[in-house]
Design a protein around this nucleic acid. Structure first.
Lengths: 146, 146
DNA sequence: CGCAATCATATTGTGCACAATTAAAAGAGG
DNA sequence: CCTCTTTTAATTGTGCACAATATGATTGCG
C-alpha cells in the first residue's frame, strides 16, 4: 500500500488539483468582490458575455461563449431576470429561441464592477507577463480539450 | 453602451474566465475517464488525499489538503462509503473526529486509475516543461489568494 | 401538403461548493 | 467539579454544472 509506488497519483504532482484548487480560490475571491453588488460569479460571467455583444444573444449563443448548456444557463438567466438585470423574450422570428439582453439597470451595473478585474489581479501575486503566459497556457489547454 | 469602453470586462482579456473554463474542461475529461470505474472527480480527489496518507485522516485533515469544508466533504465521503471504497468511524480518543481511510477495495481501486493522469496529459496539447510552468503559476496564484 | 427529422430551450435528477447554523465533545478557568 | 469557550462534524439552504429527457418550433423531403 506504499503511496510512493504511485507518484503520479500525488495530489500536487499532476495538473488537475492545482488547476481545480486555483479556480475555486479565484471564484471565492470574485464572490467577495461581487457580493457587494449582489452578483454570483456565474451571473457575472453571463453579464460579461451579454455586455460584450452588440445585440441580444440567444441562450445558445451565450452558452457557446461560456461553454455552458441550457441546464446551467436557464436558471442563472432567470435569476438575473428576477433581479432586473436582463430581459428574456422569445424570438418572434423563431419561437424556439430566447433572446437575452441586459436591461438599462444591467448596462448600468457594468460601471459598478469595472474595477473588479484590477482589484482581483492585485491580489494574485503575479506580474503582467506571468498573467499573460498563464492565460495563454490555459487557452491552449482548453482548446486541446475541446 | 459601447463594449470597447470596458476592455477589462472582455471575457478573454482577464484571467478569470480562461481559468474557470479550463478547469471545467479538465473536470469533464476526468469525468469521462473516471466514469469507467464509477468515480466522480471530487470523489477521485478525496481518494488521492486518502491514498497519500500513511494513516486514517480526519475529515478536517482531508479538507485542509483539498481546501474543502465539511459541507462538501461529508456527502462525498458518505457516497464513497456507500460504494464500499472508504470507511468512516468516530475517533475513540476524540469523539468529535471522524477517521476516514480507504477500504481494501478502495486501495485496490488505485491500480485501476493509475493510468488516468497520463491519459489526461496526453490530450492536453502541452509539453512537460509547459505543464510544470503552468502548475507553478497556479500554485503561486493559489498561495497568494490564501 | 404531411410528417419525420432536427433544432432550441426548458425541465428533472444527481452531485458538488460554500455560507450559516446546529450539536456534541473536549479543554480551560474559577 | 462546573460553566464558558473552542473545536469538529453534520445539517440546511442556495446556486451552480451537467447528463438525460421532454416540449415545442422549424426544416426537409417525398
Amino acid at each position: 500500500m506504499a503511496p510512493e509506488r504511485y507518484p503520479q497519483l500525488e495530489l500536487d504532482s499532476q495538473l488537475c488539483f492545482p488547476l481545480y484548487a486555483a479556480s475555486r480560490a479565484v471564484t471565492r475571491r470574485y464572490a467577495d468582490l461581487l457580493g457587494e453588488v449582489g452578483l454570483t460569479y456565474p451571473q457575472y460571467l453571463a453579464l460579461l458575455g451579454l455586455w460584450s455583444a452588440s445585440a441580444p444573444l440567444t441562450v445558445g449563443e451565450l452558452g457557446a461563449r461560456l461553454s455552458l448548456d441550457s441546464g446551467t444557463l436557464t436558471p442563472v438567466l432567470k435569476r438575473l431576470e428576477g433581479a432586473g438585470w436582463v430581459s428574456r423574450r422569445r424570438d418572434p422570428e423563431d419561437e424556439r429561441r430566447v433572446l437575452v439582453e441586459p436591461t438599462a439597470e444591467g448596462w448600468a451595473l457594468r460601471e459598478r464592477v469595472a474595477d473588479v478585474p484590477q482589484r482581483l489581479v492585485e491580489g494574485m501575486g503575479l506580474d503582467v507577463a506571468e498573467l499573460v503566459q498563464l492565460r495563454q497556457l490555459l487557452d491552449r489547454l482548453r482548446t486541446a480539450l475541446g
